[in-house]
Design a protein around this nucleic acid. Sequence first.
DNA 1: GTCGCAATAT
DNA 2: TATATTGCGA
Length: 464
Amino acid sequence: MSKIEVVDVSLNRAAPPQSRVNANFPEGLRVLVVDDNVVCLKLVAALLNKCHYKVTATTKATEALKMLRKKKKKYDIVITDVIMLDMNGFELLEIIDLEMDMPVIMMSANDNKELVMKGVKHGARDYLIKPLRLEEVKNIWQHVVRKNLFNTTKYGTVQAGTYQNPPIPSSKRQRENINEEEKEEKEEEEEEETNTHNEESSAKKKTKKKRVSWTGVLHNKFVDAVRQLGVDKAIPKKILDIMNEPEISRGSVASHLQKYRNALRKENTKAKMSQESENNINSNKTNGLLSNTITTSCINQGLNTINHHNRLAEQDMSTGITSFGSQLQTFGASTSNAKLLQQNQLPPKVVEDQMRPTVLGSVPPSPFFATNPSPHHELNGMRFHSINSRTKMFDDNVKMSSSQLPSFNTGQSGPSNMPVSFGPYSCPPATFNLGGVPFQMLGDASNQLNPISQPDSLAMLLPC
DNA sequence: GTCGCAATAT
DNA sequence: TATATTGCGA
C-alpha cells in the first residue's frame, strides 16, 4: 500500500501527516487541489484520503498562481475547478502545463462545454464532474505516470517502447483524452529529442543552483569581510561585495551570516555565564560570605575549564577542519574572552574558530592547533584528525578553487541522471509494477530518502 | 530589493 | 544531526 499527499494551497503547506493514509496510489503523489469552494476541497481531500483530511480555509486560485510562479512547491498533478481556470484567463493552466509540465485535471459542477473545451485546448488532461466519485479521483495517478513516461528531458530517459500495458481508462472522457495525450506526447518526445542534440539548451534546463560549500578559503574571506565591516554592520550584500565571489549568492552569504551570528550569540551567552560565575566567586570572597555549595561548584567549574584547556593544549586540535560549533563548545570561553565578548570588543575570532568550515579549513590561528602530531583525537565524541603529516596535501587542497575540489557537497552537486521519477526528490525512486510494466514511484520524502549524511570531510580528503 | 528569523530540505 | 536553502514579514 502507498500514500498520497494532499496539499492545501491556502495554507501554503502540506497537509498534516495524519492526512497521509493508505490508498491505491503511487507513493508520495503530490496533488494540488485548487478551488474556491471549501466543501469541494473537503470532498476531494476526503476522497483521496478516505476522510482523514480537513481543509481549514478557502483555497484561492490566485494563491495557487502565486505559489506556482514562485515554484515553492512542486506537485505531480493538479485538480482545479474549471471556473478557477477561467477566472485567471487560463493562466494557471499555462503556468502549470508549460512551465511545470504537470498534468491538470479540470472539474466542474455543471457541464460548461465552452470552458471545458478551453481547458482541453490549454492542455488539461481530464475533466471530472462534481460531485466527484472516488473511482475517478483515485485514478488520477495515471496521468502522472503517462506524463512522466514520455518525458525524456526533465527527470531522465525512459524508452517509450517499454510502455506496453496502459492502464484501462476509467471513463469515456479519459479514453478520448488519452488518445489526444498520446499524440501530444509523441510530438513532445520528438521535439525534446531534437533538443537533446542541443547540449546548451538541455544543460540550461538541467542547471540547478549549486550548493555552496563553505571551504576554509571561502570562510576566511567571509570572516575578513565581516571584520572589515564590523559584526554589527556586516550585512550580506556588503559582505558579498567585499568577498568578491560572483559565484556565491547573497542568500548563501545571508545564511552563513545567520549561522555565524548564532554562533556568536551562543558564545556571548557562555561568556556571560562564565562572567557571572566569576563575579559570584569574587563577591563571595570580598563579602566573606562563602557558601560551600556555590563556591565548590564555581571552583570546580573553573578548574574544569582550566584543566580542559590544558588538556586541549596538550592534545592539540591540530586540524582546523571541524564543523561549526564543535570547537568552542569544547574550549569554552576564557575569562578574558568572556569580558571582551560582553563588551563587544572581541572581533569574531572566537566564532571564527567555532565556524571553521566543514570541508576545508585554513591553517588555524589558534595555538591549540600547532603542536601534536598524533593522527587523530577524540573530543566530545567527535573525532579529529591530525593533518600535520599531511600539511602539504592539505595546503594544496586549500589552494584549489572550490570548483576543482572533489565533490563534498551534500548531494546537490549536479543533475540527476536517474530514470523517470515523478517528484522533486533526488533519491532513486522505488519501483512498482503496473500491469506488468515496472514504474518508478514517487519517493515519500519522509521515509524514502536515503539520508545524505554529511561526509566526514577530512576522512574523505585524506587517507586514514 | 534587502534583511533576518524561522521553517524546511538535504 | 548539521548545515544550506527557502519563505516570508518587516
